[in-house]
Design a protein around this nucleic acid. Structure first.
Lengths: 247, 247
DNA sequence: TACTACATCTCGCAT
DNA sequence: ATGCGAGGTGTAGTA
């Protein structure tokens, strides 16, 4: 595409707050929370309707460069082509694309008021545990869930028949050292606040790393295998399918 | 765009491993690490040359749905339009788009062999501290940097004139409770390994949260204000510019 | 491959 | 606004 045409189209679409996206060859410089530069290559550039910008290389999961909404973009003609300057004065970030060619260009006003509904999160997991406390222990009595305190928030909090307080930390996948320390912090704080040593800590997750398990035991905590709700279903399904297949 | 045309174009471009991107109206279902659904709306859909997929709503920084490379895509004609089915058998993930309209379509083979050069990371920060130990303390002698051990890796490790071992943990932005606990873990492990209590912990960051600072002091550690290298330069530049402006 | 920690993380929620 | 933790986190680096 001729760069003059690109300039005009971009200006017009940008003014209208359209979703703009184009393939181009460019060099990139970013300055802000870090400093980054990227030599000349072909990329996809998108400008969303709220001003969010992202640049994708032909491969890889993440944008190579991006800017959050709240900035402004100007297009300036240069001898080598076109300079695409994005600036966010609030965050003092710059993103500059030295565009030497534009291959294809699309822009359109998109209409979408939908929000995603999601299941199988850590919150669902703590819900499940509160509703089915035997997943943790036969005499576990949950009292609260997702309780925010000033030192963090506790996924599930309760006690057992002997009156020992119980703190449960959930992880939806492999629990690592960080999860153990999170649990440790909560248990210590509860002990401090309640003035008792009778507080037990339980880590609930589908897996735990060996180092994390060692540290957990070292601190007198325990681990309970719990799958996040939908993962459990899927796993069972798969198991059955596998069992049937193998039998 | 007529959906039959879209089907043909998509099939052809997908076969050629081109970077495909289009605006469409669709409903979305995801199943895999969680279960998610999203009602009908206008979105940008992209398929990268390695098979990475992402779907963007008109606003917001992150893709609302995505799939990593390694899967496959099929397009199936339906009464309501076209079903876009992405499946990754290795991870057992599905992403299905019920596409009712396609507004615009682009596809092209992009050529890009460049890798981004970046400065101002935490690694740069620990480099800077190792080269300028006075940023931490006048008698700090660094011994190693980014040392990986089996219990974690320590950003900067050294000692002072009195022979006390020193562990430095860097954070490029606000240090929170997690950073303090990370430091705590390293210090405890070093004490255990060396069989000494003479190990001090220092957290180096541009900021620290109040709770984190309280916890830090409670554990006998200390905080040192250190900016990541490029942030320091920018800040000083800005300060000068502001001073000049205000004077 | 598994584990660990960083990320221009982003995002939401509660204080 | 800030603090805090989750995320379908992703990604790199190392054992």
């Amino acid at each position: 595409m001729e760069l003059g045409v690109f300039e005009d189209k971009f200006e017009e679409s940008y003014k209208r707050n359209e979703f703009i996206t184009f393939f181009c060859k460019c060099k990139i410089v970013y300055s802000g929370r870090a400093e980054a530069s990227l030599g000349k290559g072909d990329r996809l550039v998108s400008v969303k309707q709220d001003g969010t910008i992202f640049v994708h290389q032909p491969e890889g999961g993440n944008p190579i460069n991006y800017m959050k909404s709240g900035g402004s973009i100007v297009i300036i003609k240069q001898d080598y082509g076109v300079l695409f300057k994005a600036h966010n004065s609030a965050t003092r970030e710059y993103l500059e694309l030295e565009i030497s060619r534009v291959y294809e260009f699309m822009a359109r006003k998109l209409d979408d008021g939908q929000k995603q509904i999601i299941a199988g999160t850590e919150a669902d997991m703590s819900d499940m545990i509160k509703d089915n406390p035997s997943l943790i222990n036969d005499d576990f009595k949950p009292l609260s869930r997702e309780e925010h305190t000033k030192f963090g928030f506790i996924d599930v909090f309760g006690h057992d028949k002997k009156g020992t307080l119980v703190v449960v930390e959930c992880k939806r996948y492999v629990a690592g050292l960080d999860a153990v320390q999170q649990l440790r912090r909560y248990v210590e704080k509860i002990k401090e606040l309640k003035g008792t040593d009778k507080v037990s800590g339980i880590l609930a997750s589908p897996k735990i790393s060996p180092n994390a398990e060692a540290m957990l035991k070292n601190w007198g905590f325990s681990w309970k295998l719990v799958n996040p709700p939908m993962r459990l279903i899927r796993h069972n399904k798969t198991q059955k399918a596998l069992d049937a297949f193998l039998s």
